[in-house]
Simulated assay, not measured.
Amino acid sequence: MNSKISFQNVTKTFDLKDSVFTALDDVSLEIEDQEFVTVVGPSGCGKSTLMGMAAGLVTPDGGQVEVDGAPVTGPGPERGVIFQQYALFPWLTVRGNVEFGLKLAGLSAEERRKRAEQAIDLVGLTDFADALPKTLSGGMKQRCAIARAYAVDPEVLLMDEPFGALDALTRVQLQDQLLDTWTQQKRTVMFITHDVDEAVYLARRVIVMAARPGRIFRIIDVDLPYPRTEEMRLSPEFAQLRNEVWHAVYHQDEPQDAVAA
């Protein structure tokens, strides 16, 4: 496989009132085409800043970010971004929200409807296509946001804690839904999370970051087959990986074999 997203020695600082905060310090990372990668780490480690660079929403002070070998200079339709906040238009139906980006892209009404219906079906919201967001549960709103991202046919999905505000049961259900969707229509996924179980369950690789300054601390391969299942969550292999990631995130002051980015 070839690298889809490439972070090359990226650095980012922010000016505070009395000091300078280094969000990222000389971070390099390669994410392969159609790979599902999760990024986890303590608060302030630069996870969201790193994703923002890939989205073209944050400009690095040093280094460069590339997608398909081309420098990222701003947002682009080949990169779909999904945040924790649903950011749905409350006056539009599920179908209207999913079609919105397609309308901006200049697609015909017929093509918009076709793509929207495919994306809505993909996330299991066909029966709610004409519903307004205020009538949907939190999980359904997030599925609508995922459908909207898929509808524009991006090659890359950038997800910043999309399930962070959901209850535990809905969160687990949406993890399975996301993997089902990813299995049907492979995309390169960079998924930011604070949840260690979620990081292991979804990913082929878990990127563990450290803070002050923000940097890559370890990269842990998840050698578990897809599709992931509930039985897999309860397996000794999953428990071992979870413990390894947990220790890397929460015990970074102890000696470890850090993996260079």
Rank of each mutant, 00 (worst) to 15 (best):
121 D>A: 10
177 Q>C: 09
124 G>Y: 10
101 G>I: 08
101 G>E: 07
149 A>D: 03
169 L>S: 11
145 A>K: 03
183 T>I: 05
182 W>G: 14
197 D>E: 14
187 R>P: 07
175 Q>E: 12
204 R>M: 09
149 A>C: 06
169 L>M: 15
116 A>F: 04
148 R>G: 04
96 G>P: 15
169 L>P: 09
146 I>A: 06
135 T>D: 13
171 R>T: 00
94 V>D: 11
111 E>A: 09
202 L>V: 01
101 G>C: 06
108 S>N: 01
195 D>A: 09
107 L>D: 01
145 A>H: 14
198 E>L: 02
123 V>H: 00
85 Q>E: 03
152 V>C: 05
102 L>M: 08
86 Y>R: 03
198 E>V: 00
180 D>W: 11
95 R>P: 07
138 G>M: 12
194 H>I: 03
169 L>W: 15
123 V>L: 01
170 T>K: 14
169 L>K: 15
133 P>A: 04
177 Q>N: 14
146 I>M: 10
119 A>I: 14
199 A>W: 04
146 I>R: 03
153 D>C: 01
119 A>R: 03
139 G>L: 08
144 C>P: 02
133 P>G: 01
124 G>I: 04
196 V>S: 14
108 S>P: 00
149 A>K: 04
139 G>V: 13
125 L>F: 07
185 Q>S: 07
164 G>C: 06
84 Q>P: 08
126 T>K: 12
169 L>N: 15
202 L>C: 07
109 A>H: 01
146 I>V: 15
149 A>F: 05
98 V>D: 02
102 L>I: 15
196 V>Q: 10
194 H>T: 02
165 A>P: 09
111 E>Q: 13
124 G>R: 10
190 M>Y: 11
114 K>R: 15
159 M>P: 07
200 V>W: 05
191 F>Y: 08
109 A>G: 05
169 L>V: 11
178 L>R: 03
103 K>S: 12
178 L>T: 02
138 G>I: 12
202 L>Y: 13
115 R>P: 01
104 L>N: 12
159 M>S: 08
173 Q>I: 04
114 K>F: 03
168 A>E: 11
171 R>N: 07
130 D>T: 05
145 A>N: 11
131 A>M: 08
148 R>D: 01
123 V>Q: 04
170 T>I: 11
191 F>I: 00
139 G>F: 11
